[in-house]
Design a protein around this nucleic acid. Structure first.
Length: 171
DNA sequence: GCAGTGATCATA
DNA sequence: ATGATCACTGCC
């Protein structure tokens, strides 16, 4: 299946996030390519969303979120884990999708650790040449997508309750 | 239920 | 320079 083009990402994050479910997260390594089916994501939507890093303004870390969609935003947290996000939307509007689960890996920290994703990927475009990209797959029917509140964002006031977490239903 | 672990950023 | 915070995980 083809690599998802920049135009796929350069749309509102709430459209992009559910459409990433079922797609293949692809990583190039020494012996070939790993492909993992994305089954859980979260949307972070712009300057008003208090859970979104971009809501606190431009900083060196969040700079890539303010660029156009289609680039990786990878950051380090809790002294141990890398979080993998794909930037979405238009330039100057900070939004991204956190990839929380793919393949056999349940949890965003475990996923990046298993796939060897680090700061090296931060700011890179999601294309083959970067060694990290996403390939298209069959569309997932609406009824097999579950929405809940996001994890670990209790500090975000009313934004914490927004149903911005999207998961493939089991079964 | 909570400790570990260190980059990041606001404050000074 | 300092200290609070943190989009997590694993062990209690």
């Amino acid at each position: 299946m083809p690599v998802l083009p920049p135009s796929f990402y350069q749309r509102p994050v709430l459209q992009v996030a559910p459409q990433l479910l079922g797609k293949k997260l692809c990583v190039k390594h020494e012996d070939g390519i790993s492909r993992a089916t994305i089954f859980e994501v979260e949307a972070y939507d712009g300057p008003l969303d208090l859970a979104c890093h971009g809501a606190r303004g431009r900083t060196p870390r969040t700079e890539v979120m303010f660029g156009p969609g289609g680039y990786w935003y990878v950051y380090f947290i809790y002294g141990m884990y890398w979080m993998l996000n794909i930037v979405t939307g238009a330039k100057d509007y900070p939004s991204a999708v956190l990839i929380r689960g793919a393949g056999e890996w349940d949890g965003p920290g475990k996923l990046t650790r298993a796939l060897g994703i680090t700061r090296n990927h931060n700011g890179q475009p999601a294309k083959r040449a970067s060694g990290l990209w996403i390939e298209d797959a069959a569309v997932i029917p609406q009824k097999s997508i579950r929405r809940t509140a996001r994890i670990g964002v209790a500090y975000a006031g009313e934004w914490a309750a927004k149903p911005y977490r999207f998961m493939l239903s089991k079964t």
